[in-house]
């Protein structure tokens, strides 16, 4: 795995910092997340401490730092969804799954990631699970949705 990360990094021959985000994007696209090993390789390439690379990456919603769960929940936190209560939904998911935004359950089944506007503002608040959209989600609905996937796993 490490070897392939180096292949990605080496495609960007100079260590110009403008390349940082494109490299991270490509790593995330290839592996689904940014692992510690990959950040270490990137940090060596740019001669920057890992805390800096990690810090910068956390400001981009697209990056996650744990492998995605079997069911990856995207939760819209764009303006419209925010106004219609996406934060409460997030809290609820976090409570049910006992993980925080950006994390994956220890059994690897669920992960949550909040993202910017998903382009369905009129249906806000919106979430998606592995690409399947759920609109106008409320606190009762979200319990049902998660329950549905949980029973599927039993």
């Amino acid at each position: 795995m490490l070897k392939n990360i180096d292949t990605i990094i080496n495609k960007f021959t100079n260590s110009n910092r403008d390349n940082l985000i494109p490299i991270l994007q490509e790593i995330q696209n290839t592996y689904g997340y940014l692992s510690e090993d990959s950040i270490v390789s990137v940090s060596k390439h740019f001669d920057l401490p890992t805390s800096k690379i990690y810090g910068i990456a956390t400001f981009y919603d697209q990056f996650i730092f744990q492998p995605k769960g079997k069911y990856h929940i995207l939760l819209c936190n764009g303006t419209s969804c925010h106004v219609s209560g996406s934060k409460k939904i997030l809290k609820e998911i976090e409570k049910i799954l006992k993980i925080k935004d950006g994390e994956t359950t220890s059994d690897g089944i669920f992960s949550i990631q909040s993202v910017n506007c998903m382009g369905a503002c009129s249906l806000s608040p919106v979430i998606s699970v592995n690409g399947k959209f759920y609109s106008k989600v409320n606190l009762i609905e979200i319990k049902k949705i998660i329950k549905f996937y949980q029973t599927k796993e039993k």
Binding site: P49, S51, K52, Y54, G55, I56, T58, F59, K100, D101, G102
Partner: peptide
């Protein structure tokens, strides 16, 4: 550089 700014949760 133990610390840097980050956005978590």
């Amino acid at each position: 550089t133990t610390y840097d700014f980050a956005k978590i949760n």
